[in-house]
Measured scan of single mutants.
Amino acid sequence: KWEEIAERLREEFNINPEEAREAVEKAGGNEEEARRIVKK
């Protein structure tokens, strides 16, 4: 599940997989929260 979210974030925000994974981890697997983290 987290991998899927990280993949979507990576494609959408054009970030590297590591950044995407970190955002999802910080968000506890919550996609909306992960998006907010990435946008900062």
Rank of each mutant, 00 (worst) to 15 (best):
residue 1 K to S: 12
residue 1 K to Q: 13
residue 1 K to N: 15
residue 1 K to D: 14
residue 1 K to G: 14
residue 1 K to E: 13
residue 1 K to W: 14
residue 1 K to H: 11
residue 1 K to R: 09
residue 1 K to P: 12
residue 1 K to Y: 12
residue 1 K to I: 11
residue 2 W to D: 05
residue 2 W to T: 06
residue 2 W to H: 06
residue 2 W to L: 07
residue 2 W to N: 07
residue 2 W to G: 05
residue 2 W to P: 06
residue 2 W to A: 07
residue 2 W to E: 05
residue 3 E to M: 12
residue 3 E to W: 10
residue 3 E to L: 12
residue 3 E to F: 11
residue 3 E to T: 12
residue 3 E to Q: 15
residue 3 E to A: 12
residue 3 E to I: 11
residue 3 E to K: 13
residue 4 E to M: 07
residue 4 E to P: 04
residue 4 E to W: 06
residue 4 E to L: 08
residue 4 E to G: 07
residue 4 E to T: 07
residue 4 E to R: 08
residue 4 E to N: 08
residue 4 E to H: 07
residue 4 E to I: 09
residue 4 E to D: 14
residue 4 E to S: 11
residue 4 E to F: 04
residue 5 I to F: 04
residue 5 I to N: 01
residue 5 I to D: 00
residue 5 I to P: 01
residue 5 I to C: 03
residue 5 I to G: 01
residue 5 I to T: 05
residue 6 A to F: 08
residue 6 A to W: 07
residue 6 A to H: 04
residue 6 A to D: 02
residue 6 A to N: 03
residue 6 A to E: 11
residue 6 A to R: 05
residue 6 A to L: 10
residue 6 A to V: 13
residue 7 E to A: 15
residue 7 E to W: 03
residue 7 E to V: 08
residue 7 E to G: 11
residue 7 E to K: 14
residue 7 E to P: 01
residue 7 E to S: 12
residue 8 R to N: 05
residue 8 R to I: 07
residue 8 R to F: 02
residue 8 R to P: 00
residue 8 R to Q: 05
residue 8 R to S: 05
residue 8 R to A: 08
residue 8 R to W: 02
residue 9 L to T: 01
residue 9 L to G: 00
residue 9 L to N: 01
residue 9 L to K: 00
residue 9 L to I: 11
residue 9 L to P: 00
residue 9 L to A: 00
residue 9 L to W: 01
residue 9 L to V: 05
residue 9 L to F: 02
residue 9 L to H: 01
residue 9 L to C: 02
residue 9 L to Y: 00
residue 10 R to M: 15
residue 10 R to T: 13
residue 10 R to S: 14
residue 10 R to E: 14
residue 10 R to H: 07
residue 10 R to N: 08
residue 10 R to Q: 11
residue 10 R to L: 11
residue 11 E to V: 09
residue 11 E to R: 10
residue 11 E to P: 05
residue 11 E to G: 07
residue 11 E to A: 10
residue 11 E to S: 08
residue 11 E to H: 10
residue 11 E to T: 09
residue 11 E to D: 15
residue 11 E to I: 08
residue 12 E to S: 03
residue 12 E to D: 15
residue 12 E to L: 04
residue 12 E to H: 05
residue 12 E to N: 02
residue 12 E to P: 00
residue 12 E to K: 02
residue 13 F to P: 06
residue 13 F to Y: 09
residue 13 F to R: 06
residue 13 F to K: 06
residue 13 F to S: 08
residue 13 F to L: 14
residue 13 F to H: 10
residue 13 F to D: 08
residue 13 F to Q: 08
residue 14 N to P: 13
residue 14 N to F: 10
residue 14 N to H: 11
residue 14 N to W: 06
residue 14 N to G: 15
residue 14 N to I: 04
residue 14 N to E: 13
residue 14 N to R: 03
residue 14 N to S: 10
residue 14 N to T: 05
residue 15 I to R: 03
residue 15 I to P: 07
residue 15 I to S: 05
residue 15 I to G: 05
residue 15 I to K: 04
residue 15 I to L: 10
residue 15 I to F: 02
residue 15 I to M: 08
residue 15 I to V: 12
residue 15 I to T: 10
residue 15 I to N: 05
residue 16 N to L: 11
residue 16 N to M: 11
residue 16 N to A: 15
residue 16 N to E: 15
residue 16 N to P: 15
residue 16 N to W: 06
residue 16 N to Q: 12
residue 16 N to I: 07
residue 16 N to H: 10
residue 16 N to V: 07
residue 16 N to R: 06
residue 17 P to S: 13
residue 17 P to E: 15
residue 17 P to T: 09
residue 17 P to H: 15
residue 17 P to D: 10
residue 17 P to Y: 15
residue 17 P to N: 10
residue 17 P to V: 15
residue 17 P to W: 15
residue 18 E to Q: 11
residue 18 E to A: 09
residue 18 E to V: 11
residue 18 E to N: 11
residue 18 E to R: 08
residue 18 E to F: 07
residue 18 E to T: 10
residue 18 E to M: 09
residue 18 E to G: 08
residue 18 E to Y: 05
residue 19 E to I: 13
residue 19 E to Y: 08
residue 19 E to G: 04
residue 19 E to T: 11
residue 19 E to H: 08
residue 19 E to R: 05
residue 19 E to C: 13
residue 19 E to Q: 12
residue 20 A to P: 00
residue 20 A to W: 03
residue 20 A to F: 03
residue 20 A to K: 01
residue 20 A to M: 02
residue 20 A to C: 04
residue 20 A to D: 01
residue 20 A to T: 03
residue 21 R to N: 09
residue 21 R to Y: 14
residue 21 R to G: 06
residue 21 R to P: 02
residue 21 R to A: 13
residue 21 R to I: 13
residue 21 R to W: 15
residue 21 R to V: 11
residue 21 R to K: 11
residue 21 R to T: 08
residue 22 E to K: 09
residue 22 E to G: 10
residue 22 E to T: 12
residue 22 E to W: 06
residue 22 E to N: 12
residue 22 E to P: 01
residue 22 E to I: 14
residue 22 E to A: 10
residue 22 E to Y: 05
residue 23 A to F: 03
residue 23 A to H: 03
residue 23 A to S: 05
residue 23 A to W: 03
residue 23 A to I: 12
residue 23 A to K: 01
residue 23 A to L: 07
residue 23 A to Y: 04
residue 23 A to D: 00
residue 24 V to P: 00
residue 24 V to Y: 03
residue 24 V to W: 04
residue 24 V to Q: 01
residue 24 V to G: 01
residue 24 V to I: 14
residue 24 V to K: 00
residue 24 V to L: 12
residue 24 V to D: 01
residue 25 E to F: 05
residue 25 E to S: 11
residue 25 E to P: 00
residue 25 E to G: 08
residue 25 E to Y: 05
residue 25 E to V: 12
residue 25 E to R: 15
residue 25 E to T: 12
residue 25 E to A: 15
residue 25 E to N: 10
residue 25 E to I: 15
residue 25 E to Q: 10
residue 26 K to G: 06
residue 26 K to I: 09
residue 26 K to S: 12
residue 26 K to V: 10
residue 26 K to C: 06
residue 26 K to L: 09
residue 26 K to P: 02
residue 26 K to H: 10
residue 26 K to N: 11
residue 26 K to A: 13
residue 26 K to Q: 12
residue 26 K to F: 06
residue 27 A to D: 01
residue 27 A to I: 01
residue 27 A to E: 01
residue 27 A to R: 00
residue 27 A to H: 02
residue 27 A to L: 01
residue 27 A to P: 01
residue 27 A to N: 01
residue 27 A to M: 03
residue 28 G to V: 09
residue 28 G to L: 14
residue 28 G to S: 11
residue 28 G to T: 06
residue 28 G to M: 15
residue 28 G to E: 10
residue 28 G to K: 12
residue 28 G to I: 10
residue 28 G to Q: 12
residue 28 G to W: 12
residue 28 G to N: 14
residue 28 G to P: 00
residue 29 G to N: 04
residue 29 G to S: 02
residue 29 G to P: 01
residue 29 G to Y: 06
residue 29 G to T: 01
residue 29 G to V: 02
residue 29 G to D: 02
residue 29 G to L: 04
residue 29 G to F: 06
residue 29 G to E: 02
residue 29 G to W: 04
residue 29 G to I: 02
residue 29 G to Q: 03
residue 30 N to E: 06
residue 30 N to W: 07
residue 30 N to M: 07
residue 30 N to Q: 09
residue 30 N to K: 07
residue 30 N to L: 08
residue 30 N to A: 09
residue 30 N to S: 11
residue 31 E to C: 06
residue 31 E to H: 11
residue 31 E to V: 09
residue 31 E to A: 10
residue 31 E to K: 05
residue 31 E to P: 07
residue 32 E to N: 08
residue 32 E to T: 10
residue 32 E to A: 12
residue 32 E to F: 08
residue 32 E to P: 08
residue 32 E to L: 09
residue 32 E to C: 11
residue 32 E to I: 11
residue 32 E to M: 09
residue 32 E to D: 11
residue 33 E to G: 06
residue 33 E to R: 08
residue 33 E to A: 09
residue 33 E to D: 10
residue 33 E to S: 07
residue 33 E to P: 01
residue 34 A to L: 01
residue 34 A to S: 04
residue 34 A to M: 01
residue 34 A to I: 02
residue 34 A to F: 00
residue 34 A to E: 01
residue 34 A to R: 00
residue 35 R to H: 06
residue 35 R to Y: 00
residue 35 R to Q: 05
residue 35 R to P: 02
residue 35 R to T: 05
residue 35 R to D: 02
residue 35 R to E: 04
residue 35 R to M: 04
residue 35 R to F: 00
residue 36 R to Y: 00
residue 36 R to V: 09
residue 36 R to N: 14
residue 36 R to L: 10
residue 36 R to G: 07
residue 36 R to A: 11
residue 36 R to D: 11
residue 36 R to S: 13
residue 36 R to H: 10
residue 37 I to K: 05
residue 37 I to F: 01
residue 37 I to Q: 08
residue 37 I to A: 09
residue 37 I to L: 07
residue 37 I to W: 00
residue 37 I to E: 06
residue 38 V to Y: 00
residue 38 V to D: 01
residue 38 V to G: 04
residue 38 V to L: 12
residue 38 V to H: 03
residue 38 V to W: 00
residue 38 V to E: 02
residue 38 V to P: 02
residue 38 V to F: 00
residue 39 K to A: 14
residue 39 K to D: 09
residue 39 K to F: 02
residue 39 K to P: 04
residue 39 K to Y: 02
residue 39 K to R: 15
residue 40 K to M: 12
residue 40 K to W: 00
residue 40 K to T: 14
residue 40 K to H: 12
residue 40 K to G: 14
residue 40 K to L: 12
residue 40 K to V: 13
residue 40 K to C: 10
